[in-house]
């Protein structure tokens, strides 16, 4: 067996068009040796989950700055579970108030990264937590 690559889906759910962060993190993941699949803008949770399953990614990284995180992030986790893909590591990033983080974690988001976090932090988090 060869060393398996960590595969990450960088997802932009909802209508949010701010993709600077998503694209910067996608490049940083690539430079960390991950295989990155970027969904593009305006994806529904259903589309994201279908892509995550077909691509058999280890990680779903959700970027959201529009304030819709409390609705959309848990929905993605639940759909993944429904489709038998609950083993994927789901992380989130964006303008997310601290108050909302406990709720998101309880909903199954493994970690939430807020503005100003160096890209090395989610990279290390993924390396440490991905189930390989």
């Amino acid at each position: 067996m060869v060393e398996s690559k960590i595969r990450v889906l960088v997802a932009k759910p909802g209508l949010d068009g701010h993709d600077r962060g998503a694209k910067v993190i996608a490049r940083a993941f690539r430079d960390a040796g991950f295989e990155v699949i970027y969904t593009g803008l305006r994806q529904t949770p259903e589309q994201i989950v279908a892509a995550a399953i077909q691509e058999d990614v280890d990680v779903v990284a959700i970027s959201l700055l529009s304030g819709a995180h409390n609705t959309l992030m848990p929905k993605i986790v639940n759909l993944l579970k429904e489709k038998g893909a609950g083993d994927k590591l789901v992380i989130g990033g964006g303008v997310i108030p601290d108050d909302d983080i406990p709720g998101l974690k309880a909903a199954g988001i493994a970690e939430v990264f807020t503005p100003g976090t160096p890209t090395s932090v989610p990279i290390e988090f993924i390396k440490a937590n991905v189930k390989k």
Binding site: K5, A26, R27, F29, R30, D31, A32, G33, F34, E35, V36, I37, Y38, T39, G40, A51, E55
Partner: peptide
């Protein structure tokens, strides 16, 4: 790095 951005799916 061995990493890749697999962009066709978009």
């Amino acid at each position: 790095t061995g990493g890749a951005i697999l962009g066709d799916r978009i």
